[in-house]
Amino acid sequence: MKAPLPPGAVCYNLGHISRIPRGEGRTYRLQDRLIAVFRSRNEELFATQAHCPHQGGPLADGIIGDGKVICPLHAFKFDLRTGAPLGNSCPGLRTYPVSLDAEGNILVTVED
């Protein structure tokens, strides 16, 4: 049995994982919120806020690797697991719990 979601939390089905090519990211719209979901080459999933805290760059368009994302606009780096800024003084990224269901659909939980 899955643990019940905490109050106020919503779980979204983002569709099948194959929509994100290995090693890339995609932006998803969860009702009125945009998030970025990344699928690493070694099949780890990460979900963060969609826009870079620096100047709003689309993070899903960044290059990833070693658990980090490089923003496509000015190459600021962030840790995908924790959202922490790496070598820059931006605020960290908001991250979201993400998992796969038995059919290979991506599930993301958003808590407010």
């Binding site: 779980c11 979204y12 983002l14 929509r19 995609r26 932006t27 719209r29 969860l30 599930l107």
Partner: peptide
Amino acid sequence: ALEATPIS
């Protein structure tokens, strides 16, 4: 931006 559906 790909669409997603709330499930629970």
